[in-house]
């Protein structure tokens, strides 16, 4: 099959998604809920693109290519959706995401760098730091579902659960018992995929005194 991405033609296998075709063509499409190790989810709406003949933008991660499809990744309507999503996501965080995180990088690339236009409520700070390796900072969770899916689809530990609705949406380990009391096997797939460091490697966070007391950190 042949598709056109931003004017350049790409040969793809049937079943290839627009996102995969774009990556094949070295064309960047922003994503937040996507991880190549996981089944496409289509939740975040940041990967929207324009398709010739389609009345509205489509999500690149879940839309399969059709032969002769003409894709515009710079489509203004799509970009408007993507930037609005990122801006809304950022507006809920109590602090901007760390520069190395995927969310910060996507925001920078989409030029969502000003203060959010909607200075409403932010997630309350809630941190779990009792695991030797994994830190859980719930206030940074954007409910992309990557950690939950990594735990299910890669490790098969089924230790993480999406909870709450709307603004209250978050993720918890076990029945909100924390990693240590859940079925977690400490594989770290959740921290590896998290785009905001809501779940991260504990030793990589500077927690002041907490950090210094971590067993082995000074060794």
């Amino acid at each position: 099959m042949r598709v056109t991405i931003d004017g350049s033609a790409v040969e793809v296998e049937p079943g290839t998604t627009i996102l995969e075709a774009a990556r094949q063509a070295d064309t960047w499409i922003p994503t937040l809920c996507f991880d190549e190790r996981l089944a496409p989810f289509g939740a975040c709406r940041v990967c929207m693109v324009g398709v010739e003949g389609n009345p509205a933008p489509v999500p690149a991660c879940t839309t399969p290519c059709r032969d002769g499809m003409n894709v515009d990744t710079q489509d203004p309507a799509s970009r408007r959706v993507a930037t609005a999503v990122v801006e809304l996501v950022l507006s809920e965080l109590p602090e901007p995401p760390a520069a190395h995180t995927e969310l910060a990088q996507v925001a920078a690339r989409l030029e969502v760098t000003d203060q959010p236009r909607w200075p409403g409520a932010t997630h309350p700070v809630r941190q779990e730091l009792d695991h030797p390796y994994l830190a859980f900072r719930h206030e940074l969770c954007i409910s992309c579902g990557r950690c939950v899916r990594a735990c299910d689809e890669i490790q098969g530990a089924f230790a993480l659960t999406a909870v709450g609705r709307g603004f209250e949406a978050n993720v918890v380990a076990g029945m909100d018992s924390g990693f240590r009391e859940s079925t977690c096997v400490s594989c770290g797939a959740c921290a590896d995929t998290c785009p905001t460091d809501a779940i991260s490697e504990r030793r990589l966070i500077e927690f002041g005194d907490v950090y210094a007391t971590i067993s082995g950190a000074g060794a």
Partner: peptide
């Protein structure tokens, strides 16, 4: 491993 590892390899 295709992008995965366990707690020994990773941590």
């Amino acid at each position: 491993n295709e992008g995965h590892t366990c707690l020994k390899g990773r941590f």
